[in-house]
């Protein structure tokens, strides 16, 4: 008799639970409060977190990639081990930073070996070449682009296609012109012995076409100055000079690997 009573209670509890679940299922989100649960049946432990809704990868039309050079290699004119050598690419820069190259494309050769088309930091300026994927490290990416206008003497940093920084600049004198073309920012230097470069300098892949015997290859930098009164103007050996406050502001906004257009 006692067993029968217990069974009745258990069945009643189950019915109440199922009924409750059914009510919850029919009424959907409009039902206030938690769904009824049979006495003695524990609720699931509430998780400490639940991930938000998955979001598709956003289109990134302004994104560009760079890669560090892992081992010294030769860049070739085509993705083919027999193609003409266009440049030797070192793993470090003259400033002793990791050498990076701007990634422009990729392709597999006939044997399935991967090659990466890169922008090079060599003369002639804006040159491209192909490196075996195995000579490069992992990809980094940026969504910025720096545009230097040699006629207007301005530098404009774009992020996702929108200007976020603009400053007047000094560029090369007529006898030592700042080279035009497509380049990239490849390192950042600080703590200089003298005030000539200001507090900070960016190294670029651009090289002077006139000062080819300059120490370390005549690379064009973007840096501060101890002669702000000369800006804007055509006052440098080819480098792009900014007021110190401007170069510090730019440093907060511009990551290494940013493509650079000098026009």
């Amino acid at each position: 008799m006692r067993l029968r009573r217990l069974l009745v209670v258990a069945v009643a509890a189950l019915v109440a639970g199922v009924g409750g679940a059914a009510i919850g299922a029919h009424s959907g989100e409009s039902t206030p409060g938690p769904a009824p649960v049979a006495a003695g049946v524990p609720q699931p432990v509430a998780p400490a977190f639940t991930p938000g809704h998955p979001e598709p990868l956003r289109a990134a039309p302004y994104r560009s990639s760079y890669a560090p050079v892992r081992v010294a290699a030769v860049a070739r004119s085509a993705p083919d081990p027999g193609a003409r050598v266009v440049a030797r690419v070192d793993a470090t820069t003259p400033e002793d930073t990791t050498n990076i190259v701007l990634v422009l494309g990729r392709r597999a050769d006939r044997s399935g070996r991967l090659w990466v088309k890169v922008r090079l930091a060599t003369l002639p300026n804006s040159r491209t070449g192909w490196l075996p994927r195995s000579t490069l490290g992992g990809y980094g990416s940026v969504d910025t682009r720096l545009v230097v206008d040699l006629r207007r003497l301005t530098a404009t940093l774009m992020r996702r296609g929108r200007p976020i920084f603009r400053a007047r600049v000094g560029v090369g004198r007529p006898q030592w012109p700042t080279p035009r073309g497509e380049f990239y920012v490849r390192n950042r230097l600080t703590k200089f012995a003298g005030p000539t470069y200001g507090p900070l300098a960016f190294g670029t892949s651009a090289r002077s076409t006139h000062l080819t015997d300059w120490p370390d290859g005549g690379f064009i930098g973007i840096h501060g100055t101890d002669e702000p009164q000369l800006l804007p103007g055509r006052v440098s050996h080819g480098c792009i000079r900014m007021r110190n406050a401007d170069i510090l502001r730019l440093a907060r906004l511009m990551p290494i690997g940013t493509p650079l257009t000098i026009a």
Binding site: T98, A193, Y197, G218
Partner: peptide
């Protein structure tokens, strides 16, 4: 992997200036 070293303290950079 190790992140590339892209920032340095450099007392005398070799840029054209």
């Amino acid at each position: 992997a190790a992140a590339p070293k892209m920032t340095r303290k450099r007392r005398k950079p070799g840029f054209t200036g």
